[in-house]
Design a protein around this nucleic acid. Structure first.
Ligand SMILES: [Zn+2]
Ligand SMILES: [Zn+2]
Ligand SMILES: [Zn+2]
Ligand SMILES: [Zn+2]
Lengths: 141, 141
DNA sequence: CCTTGAAGCTCTAGTTACTAGAGGTTTTAT
DNA sequence: ATAAAACCTCTAGTAACTAGAGCTTCAAGG
């Protein structure tokens, strides 16, 4: 039985974010005090921590919504079916993560090259600006 | 002298995106035909390609706006000062890229671990769901 | 009991970089 | 002359929050 402020502190999640999760249906509508303030229980804290942990691991809210359904936190007991679906979502996330890494690595190489060439140009014809103006000068994409 | 459609085709940029860049001031307001349709020239194409190339390299629009100012495309001639500023922006971008890579790599490791542990669990206590519910089970963050 | 400051409430709007669609006009080609 | 393609403006939607205005409620001290 705690207020939204306590819930926020216990979950490392900001108050407006908690209300936002409620708005979009990720958190259930909590009961209210006589004066209309939200009251939460332990179950809500577990659910919110699950959501935040999912976010830290890079899942989007839609995926987290599905994962919650597969978990015991969404009142239907979890079973083997659900576990397999959860794994499928995690695999998609992993693949997306690898492809982002690959893309960022090629960008980093390109940027490094620009900067190195800047240093080596003796009349300093700035390679950052030159390359941006002309994609032909790129090596990696 | 070409229409917005031709400009889009020549720059691999969608039409609404071109109008959006105009709205936010990244592209100058073009002159118009008698019937109010936009007319562009070669200069606009160079500028738009610069912008798009910057986006492909991961710069945000604010950084690209600055880079444009430093470049010869923004009618003030480029000079050494400008080159140094351009390099500074590229260095910031490079650092941000490396830190994103590092973060994604730790996430990928965590996801891999979850999936491996799922496979190894003989009663299949789904580790994806377990880990999400309990950050203590994480190794990497 | 009363007061005051902290915490909570709702609602709106802003962030980033676009994208989609409605409903109307102009161009281009036959 | 007509019809299709391209263009116009304006609004709103995307993801996941965050900030602020203006008002109400709660908790603690005197
Ligand atoms: Zn340079
Ligand atoms: Zn390139
Ligand atoms: Zn599993
Ligand atoms: Zn964790």
């Amino acid at each position: 039985m705690f207020s939204i402020g306590k819930l926020a502190a216990a979950s490392h999640c900001k108050i407006p974010t908690i209300r936002y999760y409620e708005d979009i249906g990720l958190l259930p509508t909590p009961r209210r005090s006589a004066g209309n303030q939200r009251i939460y229980g332990d179950r809500d804290l577990l659910r919110l921590r699950f959501i935040r942990h999912g976010r830290e691991l890079g899942f989007d809210l839609k995926a987290i919504g599905q994962l919650l359904q597969f978990s015991a936190l969404d009142h239907t007991a979890s079973n083997h079916q659900h576990s397999h679906q959860a794994e499928a979502i995690a695999k998609v996330q992993l693949a997306a993560t690898y492809s982002r890494i690959a893309r960022l690595q090629s960008l980093a190489e390109e940027l490094e090259l620009m900067l190195v060439n800047c240093d080596e140009s003796n009349d300093h014809q700035c390679q950052v600006l030159e390359v941006l103006a002309n994609h032909q000068l790129c090596q990696h994409h």
